[in-house]
Amino acid sequence: LVRYRTISKIPQITLNFVDLKGDPFLASPTSDREIIAPKIKERTHNVTEKVTQVLSLGADVLPEYKLQAPRIHRWTILHYSPFKAVWDWLILLLVIYTAVFTPYSAAFLLKETEEGPPATECGYACQPLAVVDLIVDIMFIVDILINFRTTYVNANEEVVSHPGRIAVHYFKGWFLIDMVAAIPFDLLIFGSGSEELIGLLKTARLLRLVRVARKLDRYSEYGAAVLFLLMCTFALIAHWLACIWYAIGNMEQPHMDSRIGWLHNLGDQIGKPYNSSGLGGPSIKDKYVTALYFTFSSLTSVGFGNVSPNTNSEKIFSICVMLIGSLMYASIFGNVSAIIQRLYSGTARYHTQMLRVREFIRFHQIPNPLRQRLEEYFQHAWSYTNGIDMNAVLKGFPECLQADICLHLNRSLLQHCKPFRGATKGCLRALAMKFKTTHAPPGDTLVHAGDLLTALYFISRGSIEILRGDVVVAILGKNDIFGEPLNLYARPGKSNGDVRALTYCDLHKIHR
Rank of each mutant, 00 (worst) to 15 (best):
W174P: 04
A182L: 13
P273K: 04
V212P: 10
I405M: 01
K395H: 15
R362K: 13
V159I: 10
Y377T: 12
N306H: 01
Q127C: 03
N156V: 09
T347D: 10
A381F: 05
A69M: 04
Q68R: 11
W75C: 04
S331F: 11
N265R: 14
A291C: 01
L374A: 06
R205P: 03
K215F: 03
D404L: 02
L236D: 01
C400Y: 10
T76C: 04
V212Y: 12
L197M: 04
P163K: 01
I339Y: 03
P254H: 03
A330D: 04
V131N: 01
Y124A: 05
I340V: 10
A125K: 15
F294Q: 01
D178Y: 01
W382P: 03
G346M: 05
A125S: 14
H380T: 09
F140G: 01
H79I: 01
I248M: 01
L374P: 03
T290V: 01
W75A: 07
T98W: 01
I270V: 03
P118L: 14
N410M: 06
P419A: 09
A423N: 01
I361L: 09
Y65D: 07
N312R: 01
F333L: 12
D133E: 15
V321D: 01
C243F: 01
V212R: 03
H169T: 05
A130F: 01
L401E: 01
S308L: 01
Y80R: 05
L188T: 04
R211H: 01
G334E: 03
G278M: 01
N368P: 11
S276E: 09
T300R: 03
E64D: 10
P282L: 01
I141S: 05
I388V: 07
Y384D: 11
L67N: 07
P184S: 01
S412K: 07
P441N: 05
D133T: 07
D143H: 01
A392W: 04
S331G: 08
S161P: 03
F360S: 02
A155C: 15
A432F: 05
D217A: 08
I135S: 03
I340T: 05
N391C: 03
Y170S: 01
R371P: 01
P184T: 01
L323K: 01
N368R: 09
W240K: 01
D143F: 01
E314R: 01
G261C: 01
R349P: 04
E375V: 10
L145C: 08
M179Y: 03
L188I: 09
L323P: 02
T113S: 07
Q253M: 14
P442N: 02
S301K: 12
L327A: 03
P184R: 05
G422L: 10
Y124C: 01
P103C: 01
G422Q: 13
I339S: 04
G325P: 01
A242S: 01
G267D: 01
E157P: 03
S345W: 10
P309F: 01
